[in-house]
Amino acid sequence: MTTADAKRVDTILKGREGASGELIEALQDIQDAFKYLPEEALRSVSEKMAVPLIEVFRVANYYKAFTLQPRGRHLLTVCMGTACHVRGAPRFLDEVLGQLDIKPGETTEDGDFTVETVNCLGACALGPVVVLDGKYHDHMTAGKLRALIQGTLSKKAKKTGDR
């Protein structure tokens, strides 16, 4: 962790010294800032907020919203709920995993994509649903999904090309 990162953590923890009740809020803020929970950040959370490290570690592990591994630039969430499942979500999940060569919950080597599965997004009428960086994409098919991923990747290529 660089000093700049440490400073960001300090800013997040400012005013929360000793306030153990705000642990989850602090972790959420760190997760937002870094897209994951770095070990050093958790250590300083424990120190500043007077919460035992094991407690911080336990909470960070317990909630699915927190992750201890760095995530990719794009987060792809595939709904595996019953409605999406019967409409073929497992098939195109295999498709996308094969394309990116990863397993659910993993990040591609170049750090572009993280694929996660979720048990239900509550948008069953739109199923099968895929969420890419917070945007819902309904009635997914393998072809549409491939186009979506390629589109995201080409956008990135364009950006780097512009530079």
């Binding site: 070990e39 958790l42 035992p52 094991i54 407690e55 911080v56 570690f57 336990r58 592990n61 317990y62």
Partner: peptide
């Protein structure tokens, strides 16, 4: 001391040290 505790939930619940090292 609170050096170790339960981590994970459901089937993954297990006793662990924070970041797998002794504090």
């Amino acid at each position: 001391s609170r050096s170790l505790g339960f981590v994970g939930r459901g089937e993954q619940r297990h006793v662990a040290l924070p970041f797998d090292e002794r504090p």
